[in-house]
């Protein structure tokens, strides 16, 4: 009798997932832009100290890192603080060579702007840090940065 019979099925219409790739791509691009590639595997524990007067490191490509801390695998390498350059443990004597190599890989015009970032664990004694700094002075890498985490400044 009813000529216009409404299609009244109880099912909900399926939600279109066609825009799903777009959403994921958007997330992907966000992460690609905001992050940097992890270059080295850390073999030393580095928990940097906190400070309030920090400055951001600019020009990531012109920064070379020196890691100092106690080895992660302390059963094999002991608990003495060690220096890590690139992917292996090194001694203070290797710093000069490391800096020269770092300079070689940068374009000639930027070599004067090379910054050395010291990523040092907060429990490390200053002796080893002082040795590294003396070594850096000898090879003329004067721009350094003590890596720290930012703490909200005290309100007083």
């Amino acid at each position: 009798m009813a000529r216009f019979k409404k299609e009244k099925s109880g099912e909900l219409p399926a939600i279109s997932t066609a825009s799903m790739p777009d959403i994921i791509f958007m997330l992907l691009f966000f992460f690609m832009v905001t992050t940097t590639m992890r270059e080295v595997t850390l073999k030393v524990k580095v928990k940097p100290p906190v400070a309030t007067e920090v400055q951001k490191l600019e020009k990531k490509s012109l920064v070379s890192f020196i890691y100092i801390g106690t080895p992660v695998q302390s059963k094999i390498y002991g608990t003495e603080s060690r220096i890590q350059l690139n992917d292996s443990f090194r001694t203070v004597n290797d710093i000069a060579e490391f800096i020269y190599n770092e300079r070689e890989t940068r374009p000639e015009a930027d070599r004067g702007l090379l910054t050395t970032s010291l990523k040092v664990d907060k429990d490390v004694k200053m002796g080893i840090v002082t040795d590294v700094k003396q070594e850096l002075r000898k090879v003329g890498a004067f721009k350094i940065n003590y890596s720290t985490r930012k703490k909200a400044p005290k309100t007083n």
Partner: peptide, 19 residues
């Protein structure tokens, strides 16, 4: 990308060593 990247901004106290 989530796994291979680090989010932290490198920051620290900037100093200039004397010659």
């Amino acid at each position: 990308f989530l796994v291979t990247t680090t989010m932290d901004v490198d920051s620290g106290i900037v100093r200039r060593l004397p010659p």
